[in-house]
């Protein structure tokens, strides 16, 4: 035996595995980006058409990346919101209701105060963010003060939100036609519509909160070990309520981008965000038991889900195969991107 400390190789191994798990989501994304062009190539090869792999790919084009980015932008905002909650080891399922309420109230305020970005109607944007914050705040209060598990409290708040949106609209859809607001979609800088840059800005803000503020560090503290955090004098309840409020703000941003994308606010605006956002967070490598992961993981997760969705249509997979395939790919992505050896049990 040499004098080398016996712990060293172990540490080295663990580091390796950790590094791998850390970068696995990105690896999955990379594989997908090569996989879909392969199917395109295969199709053209069978049809005996000229097709150089990757170079002639329609999937791997800037225009298509812009399309993926457009569909990912609203989902990214919602997923970032729920990332903070999952980091705390809780879950927030209120996104569909909150997005609908924010979208509908934004549309009402925007149209009611002039209907153009050049007027007071611009105040509808902070208005929507405040509404989102309020919904999240109530959500947090219900969870913490009434001691209802977060998944039940937030699911119930989500239903309240959907009901409220329905009550406000009476089931109608509200069109937001203002050219300046719709420039979120129609005006492009460097091939990407403005809404993608807004989402990028939201991501940077979230990253700042996560890594540079006490609140962000407290999320990790609560998720990593709530008892410990409490014993260290952290007001866990306060952190939770603030977390839900913050999530509400990001849901509202998601709502604004969703309205920007299709120009319609309705009760159904929130539909589908629950699946996409939770899946994206988990696929991105943020652990559902809290304490591990972050907003960059979520970005990768959202991109994975949207690349899969877009890619399946691009390679011409029949509709009835798509849902099943998405489910399988999500399981595969989770298997690859989370370190399940570190958890002793799964519930």
């Amino acid at each position: 035996m040499t004098a080398t400390p016996s712990v060293l190789p172990d540490t080295h191994n663990r580091l390796n595995r950790e590094t791998l798990v850390k970068w696995a989501p990105l690896l999955v994304l990379g594989v997908l980006l090569l996989l879909f062009p392969f199917f395109e190539w295969l199709e053209d090869f069978r049809a005996a058409k000229d097709h150089t792999y990757l170079v002639d790919s329609r999937f791997l084009s800037i225009r298509n990346f812009a399309r993926i980015a457009i569909s990912a932008s609203p989902a990214l905002m919602v997923a970032i919101g729920v990332t903070f909650i999952i980091l705390m080891g809780s879950i927030d399922l209120s996104m569909e209701g909150t997005v609908s309420v924010c979208a509908v109230l934004f549309a009402f305020l925007f149209l009611g105060m002039g209907g153009t970005m050049g007027s007071w109607a611009i105040l509808a944007i902070p208005g929507a963010l405040i509404v989102g914050a309020a919904m999240g705040f109530i959500n947090g209060l219900v969870h913490v003060k009434l001691k209802i598990p977060s998944f039940m409290a937030s699911l119930a708040m989500g239903f309240v939100g959907t009901g409220l949106a329905l009550l406000l609209t009476g089931g109608d859809r509200i069109r937001v036609e203002d050219e300046a607001f719709r420039s979120l979609l129609t005006v492009r800088w460097f091939n990407f519509p403005i809404m993608c840059y807004v989402a990028l800005f939201g991501l940077l803000v979230a990253w700042f909160i996560q890594s540079r503020t006490t609140l962000g560090r407290n999320f990790y503290a609560v998720g990593g070990g709530e008892e410990l955090a409490k014993a260290s004098g952290l007001n866990v309840n306060r952190v939770r309520i603030m977390g839900f409020t913050l999530a509400g703000v990001f849901f509202a941003m998601g709502a604004l981008l969703a309205v920007g994308r299709i120009g319609i606010a309705e009760t159904a605006t929130g539909n589908g965000f629950m699946f996409v956002s939770i899946t994206a967070v988990v696929v991105g490598g943020t652990a559902l038991w809290g304490g591990i992961g972050g907003v960059w993981n979520t970005l990768i997760g959202v991109l994975i889900v949207n690349v899969i969705n877009n890619g399946m249509v691009v390679i011409g997979l029949p509709g009835w195969v798509q849902d099943g395939t998405l489910g399988l790919l999500v399981i595969a992505a989770v298997v690859l991107s989370t370190d399940r050896r570190a958890v002793s049990f799964v519930k």
């Binding site: 399309r67 569909s71 299709i262 309705e266 969705n309 877009n310 011409g316």
Partner: peptide
């Protein structure tokens, strides 16, 4: 509406 939006984007790529 939103699903249609995404499916149509895929069609445009393909």
């Amino acid at each position: 509406t939103q699903k249609a939006n995404e499916v149509m984007s895929g069609f445009i790529t393909r």
